[in-house]
Design a protein around this nucleic acid. Structure first.
Lengths: 174, 174
DNA sequence: TATATACGTCAACATGGCTGACCCATATAA
DNA sequence: TTATATGGGTCAGCCATGTTGACGTATATA
Protein backbone atom coordinates (compact mmCIF):
# COMPACT_ATOMS: atom_id res chain seq x y z
CA UNK A 1 0.00 0.00 0.00
CA UNK A 2 1.49 3.30 -0.99
CA UNK A 3 0.18 5.26 1.95
CA UNK A 4 -0.82 3.28 5.03
CA UNK A 5 -2.76 6.24 6.44
CA UNK A 6 -4.97 6.84 3.49
CA UNK A 7 -8.62 6.49 4.34
CA UNK A 8 -10.31 3.94 2.17
CA UNK A 9 -13.36 2.95 4.14
CA UNK A 10 -16.43 4.61 5.54
CA UNK A 11 -16.64 2.17 8.44
CA UNK A 12 -16.49 3.43 11.97
CA UNK A 13 -13.82 2.23 14.36
CA UNK A 14 -11.72 1.53 11.33
CA UNK A 15 -8.11 0.58 11.87
CA UNK A 16 -5.73 1.58 9.18
CA UNK A 17 -2.12 0.64 8.69
CA UNK A 18 0.03 1.12 11.75
CA UNK A 19 -2.08 3.85 13.29
CA UNK A 20 -5.38 2.54 14.57
CA UNK A 21 -5.45 4.81 17.60
CA UNK A 22 -6.08 7.98 15.68
CA UNK A 23 -9.15 6.83 13.97
CA UNK A 24 -11.46 5.63 16.68
CA UNK A 25 -14.83 7.26 16.83
CA UNK A 26 -14.42 8.42 20.40
CA UNK A 27 -11.30 10.38 19.61
CA UNK A 28 -12.95 12.03 16.68
CA UNK A 29 -15.96 12.98 18.77
CA UNK A 30 -13.78 14.25 21.55
CA UNK A 31 -11.94 16.53 19.16
CA UNK A 32 -15.14 17.72 17.53
CA UNK A 33 -16.67 18.55 20.89
CA UNK A 34 -13.66 20.30 22.33
CA UNK A 35 -13.29 22.28 19.15
CA UNK A 36 -16.93 23.28 19.23
CA UNK A 37 -16.99 24.28 22.89
CA UNK A 38 -13.55 25.87 22.84
CA UNK A 39 -14.33 27.94 19.80
CA UNK A 40 -17.78 29.03 20.92
CA UNK A 41 -16.69 29.89 24.46
CA UNK A 42 -13.76 31.93 23.24
CA UNK A 43 -15.91 33.89 20.80
CA UNK A 44 -18.63 34.32 23.40
CA UNK A 45 -16.16 36.12 25.64
CA UNK A 46 -15.52 38.61 22.85
CA UNK A 47 -19.19 39.08 22.05
CA UNK A 48 -19.73 40.86 25.32
CA UNK A 49 -17.23 43.60 24.61
CA UNK A 50 -18.57 43.78 21.11
CA UNK A 51 -22.16 44.17 22.19
CA UNK A 52 -21.22 47.21 24.26
CA UNK A 53 -20.36 48.95 21.02
CA UNK A 54 -23.42 47.67 19.23
CA UNK A 55 -21.23 45.59 16.94
CA UNK A 56 -21.29 41.93 16.01
CA UNK A 57 -18.86 39.18 15.18
CA UNK A 58 -18.76 40.12 11.53
CA UNK A 59 -17.38 43.50 12.48
CA UNK A 60 -14.81 41.97 14.74
CA UNK A 61 -13.51 39.62 12.07
CA UNK A 62 -13.01 42.52 9.69
CA UNK A 63 -11.31 44.64 12.35
CA UNK A 64 -9.10 41.73 13.27
CA UNK A 65 -7.74 41.12 9.80
CA UNK A 66 -7.33 44.80 9.06
CA UNK A 67 -5.36 45.15 12.29
CA UNK A 68 -3.32 42.14 11.41
CA UNK A 69 -2.46 43.30 7.93
CA UNK A 70 -2.75 47.05 7.54
CA UNK A 71 -3.40 48.22 3.99
CA UNK A 72 -5.14 44.97 3.22
CA UNK A 73 -7.19 45.23 0.03
CA UNK A 74 -10.90 44.49 -0.07
CA UNK A 75 -10.20 41.48 -2.27
CA UNK A 76 -7.74 40.00 0.21
CA UNK A 77 -10.13 40.54 3.07
CA UNK A 78 -12.84 38.77 1.10
CA UNK A 79 -10.62 35.71 0.84
CA UNK A 80 -9.96 35.62 4.56
CA UNK A 81 -13.58 35.98 5.45
CA UNK A 82 -14.96 33.75 2.69
CA UNK A 83 -18.16 35.75 2.36
CA UNK A 84 -19.64 37.68 -0.55
CA UNK A 85 -18.66 41.22 -1.37
CA UNK A 86 -22.22 42.31 -0.67
CA UNK A 87 -22.04 41.01 2.89
CA UNK A 88 -18.65 42.53 3.41
CA UNK A 89 -19.85 45.81 1.93
CA UNK A 90 -22.39 46.22 4.69
CA UNK A 91 -19.83 45.52 7.38
CA UNK A 92 -17.25 47.90 5.94
CA UNK A 93 -19.69 50.72 5.49
CA UNK A 94 -20.84 50.36 9.09
CA UNK A 95 -17.24 50.41 10.29
CA UNK A 96 -16.55 53.45 8.14
CA UNK A 97 -19.60 55.29 9.45
CA UNK A 98 -18.41 54.73 12.99
CA UNK A 99 -14.97 56.03 12.05
CA UNK A 100 -13.29 52.76 12.92
CA UNK A 101 -11.65 52.19 9.56
CA UNK A 102 -10.46 54.35 6.67
CA UNK A 103 -9.52 53.60 3.09
CA UNK A 104 -7.31 54.98 0.40
CA UNK A 105 -6.67 53.94 -3.18
CA UNK A 106 -3.85 51.54 -3.91
CA UNK A 107 -0.55 53.04 -5.01
CA UNK A 108 0.30 50.61 -7.78
CA UNK A 109 -3.29 49.80 -8.69
CA UNK A 110 -5.70 52.59 -8.03
CA UNK A 111 -8.73 50.33 -8.42
CA UNK A 112 -7.85 48.71 -5.14
CA UNK A 113 -8.93 50.04 -1.79
CA UNK A 114 -6.48 49.74 1.04
CA UNK A 115 -8.02 49.29 4.45
CA UNK A 116 -6.64 50.62 7.71
CA UNK A 117 -7.87 51.07 11.24
CA UNK A 118 -8.34 54.61 12.46
CA UNK A 119 -7.02 55.52 15.85
CA UNK A 120 -10.29 54.66 17.53
CA UNK A 121 -10.56 51.52 15.44
CA UNK A 122 -7.15 50.43 16.66
CA UNK A 123 -8.17 51.16 20.23
CA UNK A 124 -11.29 49.05 19.89
CA UNK A 125 -9.44 46.21 18.22
CA UNK A 126 -6.85 46.25 20.98
CA UNK A 127 -9.57 46.03 23.58
CA UNK A 128 -11.22 43.10 21.83
CA UNK A 129 -7.87 41.44 21.32
CA UNK A 130 -7.41 41.56 25.03
CA UNK A 131 -10.29 39.15 25.50
CA UNK A 132 -8.69 36.80 23.01
CA UNK A 133 -5.42 37.10 24.82
CA UNK A 134 -6.97 36.41 28.18
CA UNK A 135 -8.62 33.25 26.94
CA UNK A 136 -5.75 31.89 24.90
CA UNK A 137 -2.92 32.75 27.22
CA UNK A 138 -4.80 31.16 30.06
CA UNK A 139 -5.26 28.00 28.01
CA UNK A 140 -1.64 28.05 26.81
CA UNK A 141 -0.31 28.45 30.30
CA UNK A 142 -2.44 25.66 31.70
CA UNK A 143 -1.52 23.29 28.89
CA UNK A 144 2.18 24.01 28.52
CA UNK A 145 4.37 24.75 25.54
CA UNK A 146 4.45 21.27 24.06
CA UNK A 147 0.70 21.13 24.05
CA UNK A 148 0.52 24.49 22.32
CA UNK A 149 2.66 23.17 19.47
CA UNK A 150 0.38 20.18 19.14
CA UNK A 151 -2.65 22.44 19.18
CA UNK A 152 -1.23 24.41 16.27
CA UNK A 153 -0.19 21.33 14.34
CA UNK A 154 -3.58 19.66 14.52
CA UNK A 155 -5.40 22.84 13.57
CA UNK A 156 -3.11 23.28 10.58
CA UNK A 157 -4.02 19.79 9.51
CA UNK A 158 -7.68 20.72 9.50
CA UNK A 159 -7.11 23.46 6.96
CA UNK A 160 -7.01 22.57 3.26
CA UNK A 161 -3.51 22.79 1.79
CA UNK A 162 -4.46 25.51 -0.63
CA UNK A 163 -5.48 27.83 2.19
CA UNK A 164 -2.27 27.53 4.17
CA UNK A 165 -0.13 29.99 2.18
CA UNK A 166 -2.74 32.69 2.69
CA UNK A 167 -2.71 32.08 6.43
CA UNK A 168 1.06 31.89 6.60
CA UNK A 169 1.18 35.25 4.83
CA UNK A 170 -0.56 36.79 7.84
CA UNK A 171 2.56 36.16 9.86
CA UNK A 172 4.96 37.74 7.43
CA UNK A 173 5.75 41.43 6.94
CA UNK A 174 3.01 43.95 6.23
CA UNK B 1 4.22 37.11 43.48
CA UNK B 2 1.77 34.37 44.26
CA UNK B 3 1.16 33.26 40.69
CA UNK B 4 3.79 34.19 38.14
CA UNK B 5 1.41 33.51 35.25
CA UNK B 6 -1.36 35.74 36.35
CA UNK B 7 -2.16 38.46 33.90
CA UNK B 8 -1.92 41.85 35.47
CA UNK B 9 -1.39 44.14 32.54
CA UNK B 10 -3.17 45.07 29.35
CA UNK B 11 0.11 45.71 27.53
CA UNK B 12 0.91 43.77 24.41
CA UNK B 13 4.06 41.69 24.15
CA UNK B 14 3.98 41.42 27.86
CA UNK B 15 6.40 39.02 29.50
CA UNK B 16 5.30 37.54 32.75
CA UNK B 17 7.19 35.49 35.28
CA UNK B 18 9.18 32.55 33.95
CA UNK B 19 6.99 32.00 30.93
CA UNK B 20 7.25 34.89 28.50
CA UNK B 21 6.89 32.72 25.43
CA UNK B 22 3.27 31.89 25.97
CA UNK B 23 2.08 35.39 26.13
CA UNK B 24 3.48 37.11 23.12
CA UNK B 25 0.99 38.69 20.82
CA UNK B 26 2.10 36.68 17.82
CA UNK B 27 1.41 33.41 19.52
CA UNK B 28 -2.00 34.53 20.57
CA UNK B 29 -2.82 35.70 17.06
CA UNK B 30 -1.52 32.50 15.59
CA UNK B 31 -3.77 30.44 17.84
CA UNK B 32 -6.76 32.65 17.14
CA UNK B 33 -6.24 32.39 13.40
CA UNK B 34 -5.68 28.67 13.31
CA UNK B 35 -8.71 28.14 15.50
CA UNK B 36 -10.83 30.32 13.26
CA UNK B 37 -9.72 28.75 10.00
CA UNK B 38 -9.63 25.22 11.37
CA UNK B 39 -13.09 25.48 12.82
CA UNK B 40 -14.66 27.17 9.82
CA UNK B 41 -13.07 24.82 7.28
CA UNK B 42 -14.14 21.76 9.21
CA UNK B 43 -17.71 22.95 9.51
CA UNK B 44 -17.75 24.04 5.87
CA UNK B 45 -17.02 20.47 4.82
CA UNK B 46 -20.10 19.34 6.71
CA UNK B 47 -22.29 22.08 5.33
CA UNK B 48 -22.16 20.53 1.89
CA UNK B 49 -23.64 17.23 2.99
CA UNK B 50 -26.13 19.15 5.07
CA UNK B 51 -27.26 21.36 2.20
CA UNK B 52 -28.14 18.25 0.17
CA UNK B 53 -30.81 17.53 2.75
CA UNK B 54 -31.94 21.11 2.95
CA UNK B 55 -30.70 21.31 6.53
CA UNK B 56 -28.41 23.77 8.29
CA UNK B 57 -25.81 23.75 10.99
CA UNK B 58 -28.37 24.18 13.70
CA UNK B 59 -29.93 20.87 12.71
CA UNK B 60 -26.60 19.17 12.67
CA UNK B 61 -25.69 20.31 16.15
CA UNK B 62 -28.94 18.93 17.51
CA UNK B 63 -28.53 15.63 15.65
CA UNK B 64 -24.97 15.39 16.88
CA UNK B 65 -25.79 15.69 20.56
CA UNK B 66 -28.83 13.46 20.34
CA UNK B 67 -26.66 10.82 18.64
CA UNK B 68 -24.03 11.27 21.28
CA UNK B 69 -26.39 10.98 24.21
CA UNK B 70 -29.58 9.12 23.32
CA UNK B 71 -32.56 9.98 25.52
CA UNK B 72 -31.14 13.40 26.16
CA UNK B 73 -33.78 15.74 27.58
CA UNK B 74 -34.70 19.02 25.92
CA UNK B 75 -33.25 20.89 28.87
CA UNK B 76 -29.91 19.14 28.61
CA UNK B 77 -29.75 19.80 24.90
CA UNK B 78 -30.44 23.48 25.57
CA UNK B 79 -27.41 23.61 27.80
CA UNK B 80 -25.14 22.09 25.18
CA UNK B 81 -26.34 24.39 22.47
CA UNK B 82 -26.62 27.53 24.60
CA UNK B 83 -29.57 28.90 22.64
CA UNK B 84 -33.12 29.75 23.64
CA UNK B 85 -35.87 27.18 23.79
CA UNK B 86 -37.70 29.07 21.04
CA UNK B 87 -34.77 28.66 18.69
CA UNK B 88 -34.36 25.04 19.61
CA UNK B 89 -38.09 24.48 19.24
CA UNK B 90 -37.95 25.40 15.58
CA UNK B 91 -35.05 23.05 14.96
CA UNK B 92 -36.61 20.14 16.80
CA UNK B 93 -39.95 20.48 15.08
CA UNK B 94 -38.25 20.50 11.68
CA UNK B 95 -36.28 17.40 12.60
CA UNK B 96 -39.45 15.74 13.84
CA UNK B 97 -41.35 16.61 10.68
CA UNK B 98 -38.63 14.98 8.61
CA UNK B 99 -38.81 11.89 10.79
CA UNK B 100 -35.20 12.26 11.89
CA UNK B 101 -35.87 12.32 15.62
CA UNK B 102 -38.54 11.01 17.98
CA UNK B 103 -39.48 11.77 21.55
CA UNK B 104 -41.08 10.09 24.50
CA UNK B 105 -41.89 11.27 28.00
CA UNK B 106 -39.33 10.73 30.74
CA UNK B 107 -39.79 7.70 32.97
CA UNK B 108 -39.05 9.29 36.32
CA UNK B 109 -40.27 12.78 35.38
CA UNK B 110 -43.00 12.77 32.82
CA UNK B 111 -42.66 16.47 32.11
CA UNK B 112 -39.36 15.76 30.41
CA UNK B 113 -39.08 14.82 26.78
CA UNK B 114 -36.42 12.29 25.87
CA UNK B 115 -34.91 12.73 22.44
CA UNK B 116 -33.70 9.97 20.15
CA UNK B 117 -32.70 9.61 16.54
CA UNK B 118 -34.96 7.57 14.32
CA UNK B 119 -33.37 5.04 12.03
CA UNK B 120 -33.11 7.55 9.20
CA UNK B 121 -31.88 10.20 11.61
CA UNK B 122 -29.12 7.87 12.71
CA UNK B 123 -28.23 7.19 9.10
CA UNK B 124 -27.98 10.88 8.34
CA UNK B 125 -25.97 11.62 11.44
CA UNK B 126 -23.57 8.82 10.55
CA UNK B 127 -23.11 10.27 7.10
CA UNK B 128 -22.41 13.73 8.48
CA UNK B 129 -20.12 12.28 11.11
CA UNK B 130 -18.10 10.81 8.30
CA UNK B 131 -17.14 14.27 7.12
CA UNK B 132 -16.01 15.13 10.62
CA UNK B 133 -14.05 11.92 10.77
CA UNK B 134 -12.37 12.55 7.45
CA UNK B 135 -11.23 16.00 8.49
CA UNK B 136 -10.17 15.18 12.01
CA UNK B 137 -8.52 11.85 11.36
CA UNK B 138 -6.56 13.40 8.54
CA UNK B 139 -5.38 16.16 10.87
CA UNK B 140 -4.66 13.72 13.71
CA UNK B 141 -2.64 11.48 11.44
CA UNK B 142 -0.60 14.30 10.02
CA UNK B 143 0.09 15.77 13.44
CA UNK B 144 0.78 12.63 15.44
CA UNK B 145 -0.49 11.40 18.76
CA UNK B 146 1.44 13.75 21.00
CA UNK B 147 0.09 16.71 19.11
CA UNK B 148 -3.43 15.40 19.46
CA UNK B 149 -3.07 15.33 23.23
CA UNK B 150 -1.83 18.90 23.18
CA UNK B 151 -4.71 19.90 20.94
CA UNK B 152 -7.16 18.52 23.46
CA UNK B 153 -5.43 20.05 26.43
CA UNK B 154 -5.36 23.54 25.01
CA UNK B 155 -8.97 23.37 23.93
CA UNK B 156 -9.99 22.23 27.39
CA UNK B 157 -8.21 25.24 28.78
CA UNK B 158 -10.34 27.51 26.63
CA UNK B 159 -13.53 26.22 28.20
CA UNK B 160 -14.72 27.72 31.47
CA UNK B 161 -14.30 25.36 34.41
CA UNK B 162 -17.99 25.21 35.10
CA UNK B 163 -18.71 23.83 31.65
CA UNK B 164 -16.22 20.98 31.78
CA UNK B 165 -18.31 18.51 33.80
CA UNK B 166 -21.11 18.79 31.26
CA UNK B 167 -18.69 18.04 28.44
CA UNK B 168 -17.02 15.23 30.33
CA UNK B 169 -20.45 13.70 30.85
CA UNK B 170 -20.75 13.27 27.10
CA UNK B 171 -18.03 10.67 27.26
CA UNK B 172 -19.58 8.64 30.01
CA UNK B 173 -22.37 6.04 29.77
CA UNK B 174 -25.73 6.91 28.25
C1' DT C 1 -9.66 50.30 -28.43
C1' DA C 2 -11.58 46.20 -26.27
C1' DT C 3 -11.78 43.45 -22.44
C1' DA C 4 -10.85 42.05 -17.79
C1' DT C 5 -10.56 43.25 -13.05
C1' DA C 6 -11.47 45.67 -8.44
C1' DC C 7 -14.92 47.49 -6.17
C1' DG C 8 -19.73 49.26 -5.20
C1' DT C 9 -24.74 48.99 -4.86
C1' DC C 10 -29.80 47.89 -5.13
C1' DA C 11 -33.17 44.43 -4.09
C1' DA C 12 -35.04 40.27 -2.38
C1' DC C 13 -34.54 36.40 0.40
C1' DA C 14 -32.83 32.56 3.98
C1' DT C 15 -31.03 31.03 8.33
C1' DG C 16 -30.75 31.05 12.85
C1' DG C 17 -30.32 33.68 16.59
C1' DC C 18 -33.19 36.95 20.06
C1' DT C 19 -37.09 38.98 23.39
C1' DG C 20 -41.65 39.03 25.39
C1' DA C 21 -45.85 37.06 26.53
C1' DC C 22 -48.49 33.38 27.58
C1' DC C 23 -49.90 28.22 27.92
C1' DC C 24 -50.11 23.34 29.77
C1' DA C 25 -48.83 19.34 32.55
C1' DT C 26 -46.44 17.49 36.22
C1' DA C 27 -43.57 17.68 40.55
C1' DT C 28 -42.89 19.25 44.89
C1' DA C 29 -43.37 21.98 49.12
C1' DA C 30 -46.37 24.34 52.54
C1' DT D 1 -54.67 19.65 49.17
C1' DT D 2 -53.51 23.59 47.47
C1' DA D 3 -49.86 26.67 45.94
C1' DT D 4 -45.81 27.19 43.49
C1' DA D 5 -41.89 25.81 40.72
C1' DT D 6 -40.26 23.46 36.81
C1' DG D 7 -40.01 21.21 32.05
C1' DG D 8 -41.57 22.10 27.96
C1' DG D 9 -44.37 24.43 24.00
C1' DT D 10 -45.94 28.28 21.10
C1' DC D 11 -47.15 32.76 18.85
C1' DA D 12 -45.36 37.05 17.14
C1' DG D 13 -42.00 40.16 15.83
C1' DC D 14 -37.29 41.56 15.44
C1' DC D 15 -32.14 41.44 14.36
C1' DA D 16 -27.57 39.97 12.45
C1' DT D 17 -25.49 38.03 8.88
C1' DG D 18 -25.28 35.35 5.28
C1' DT D 19 -27.02 34.39 0.10
C1' DT D 20 -28.22 35.40 -5.40
C1' DG D 21 -28.75 38.20 -9.24
C1' DA D 22 -28.31 42.22 -11.83
C1' DC D 23 -26.08 46.23 -12.92
C1' DG D 24 -22.63 50.34 -12.62
C1' DT D 25 -17.92 52.65 -12.61
C1' DA D 26 -13.08 53.29 -12.71
C1' DT D 27 -8.77 51.59 -13.86
C1' DA D 28 -5.47 48.14 -15.95
C1' DT D 29 -3.91 45.60 -19.54
C1' DA D 30 -3.71 43.04 -24.08
Amino acid sequence: MADPYKIESRDRNVSIGASPLFLREDEIRRGAELLYFGYTRLTASIDEGLAEQGLGRAHHRALYFIARKPDLTVGELLKFLAITKQSLGRVLSELTNRDLIETRPGASDRRQKLLRLTESGAALEAQLFDDLRQGLSNAYTKAGQDSVSGFWRVLEGLIPEEDLPMIAALRKLG
